[in-house]
Design a binder for these strands. Structure first.
Length: 191
DNA sequence: TCCCCGATTAACT
DNA sequence: GTTAATCGGGGAG
């Protein structure tokens, strides 16, 4: 959720994420801390924003302890409130195109490099809310999207059958196979 | 310095 | 299904 300075707010329900960690060749943190990835190695609960393909920004929540280098990429969400503002930012009113995709989600929320390092737990207009927990049976796990190494790690998590999960993923030829998570599903984030 | 390519998207054929 | 857009990170020289 993001509170807007002019009043009003943007709310979206996260339906797709991917996990990245330090011993993971697909992770920006793989080669150790750099000016770009310092935030990933910082305190958990902060926002790591990266710029890619010369035009897109993506949002991550830092998850590991200080010094650790892990984060969760927010890939897709269902827009819930503030659709008009998201539409203005995105240039399309199709709800399925507002927040489905990591760069689309960041654009809808107006997040760019300036927001890198924000504390999502305290003192920010951008933060996470705990909602109704997603039942374990609805959590699907697949391989990650758009990476060239570390493909085998099944660290993408989706709400099964949710129409707001991004397409880039479920559509590809070498389509990631969806399976039930083993062990513990991601626990819902609390305040 | 040079060079390759990326945790993507939209617009093509 | 394919490709242009667009630029910064970071390894190689």
């Amino acid at each position: 959720m993001r509170e807007l300075s002019g009043g009003g707010r943007l709310v979206a329900r996260i339906v797709e994420t991917e996990a990245y960690q330090e011993d993971d060749p697909a992770s920006h943190s793989y080669r150790g801390p750099t000016p770009r990835t310092d935030v990933m190695f910082g305190r958990p609960g902060h926002l790591y924003v990266y710029f890619t393909y010369g035009m897109h920004h993506c949002m991550n929540v830092v998850t590991g302890r200080s010094g650790e280098g892990s984060a969760v990429l927010l890939r897709s969400a269902e827009p819930v409130e503030g659709l008009a503002e998201m539409t203005r930012r995105r240039g399309t009113g199709d709800p399925q195109l507002l927040c489905s995709g990591p760069a689309r989600l960041a654009q809808a929320f107006g997040v760019a490099r300036g927001e890198n390092g924000l504390d999502l737990v305290r003192g920010s207009d951008l933060f996470l809310l705990g909602g109704d927990p997603v039942p374990r049976s609805r959590v699907g796990r697949t391989t990650r999207v758009g990476i060239s190494t570390g493909r085998e790690r099944p660290w993408r998590f989706v709400v099964r059958g949710d129409p707001f999960v991004s397409r880039g993923s479920s559509r590809r030829a070498s389509s990631p196979r969806e399976s039930s998570p083993r062990g513990h599903p991601p626990s819902p984030l609390k305040d």
